[in-house]
Write a protein that binds this DNA or RNA. Structure first.
Lengths: 104, 104
DNA sequence: AGAATACATAAGCGGGTACTTATGCGATTC
DNA sequence: GAATCGCATAAGTACCCGCTTATGTATTCT
């Protein structure tokens, strides 16, 4: 919910990968677990942290828990990034082009 | 230099604050130290990590070391954020308006 | 009702992290 | 040249983090 929580939640590679995986669509915990080389509790813990940061939302259905990305949760991060993009737009965008292999 | 390093470098509140402080202009280590309630080695360690992540650059002048933001270092983060902004532009931007107290 | 499933929580462990004080090293000042 | 300054690095410490196994709690199946 706070900016600091968002940065910390996305700092861990596995947790960030979980978030990115959910970006492709809603998924149950067990379905997520099948995609990663960690235990089910580890997945649940990552999801709890992402949820606390406002980055994902949960939907219960019987004994299943379906998680999905909460796009609004990224707004504080988008906002933070935009502050610096506004400062140095040309330099950042130019490097982005380079990273994408584009020639000016 | 790698995306993971950037997220981790910005995850710590103090280190992120150091980066944000440098965004207002180049500054020596001692000048930075005066702004934070931590020791000089702590500042140097944060700067070393930000530098390793490509987020700041250093300029030596005599016994002074001046640090400044390296805007291109933010490109991978900007790129990551843009991927999700492209997914859900309206939802993110709408919340950003709400956060800024704007009415549609 | 009992077994099995889906998930969360508890407890514990090893490694990492952010800080401190102590020390080293080059540059400046006296 | 000796002392001082600006900064980096070393070493140590307390805490945090991500992971594991073990256990608990609903829900579903037979």
């Amino acid at each position: 919910m706070i900016q600091a929580d968002i940065f910390r939640a996305l700092a861990d590679p596995t947790r960030r990968a979980v978030f990115e995986r959910l970006a492709s669509g809603e998924m149950s915990v067990s379905a997520l677990k099948a995609r990663f080389a960690v235990s089910q509790p580890a997945i649940s813990q990552h999801l709890a942290m992402l949820k606390a940061a406002g980055l994902v939302a949960e939907r219960r259905e019987g004994r299943f828990s379906y998680y999905r990305v909460a796009p609004e949760g990224l707004a504080p991060l988008v906002d933070w990034v935009d502050r610096y993009r506004a400062f140095w737009p040309e330099r950042i965008d130019r490097l982005k082009d380079v990273l994408k292999g584009l020639e000016p």
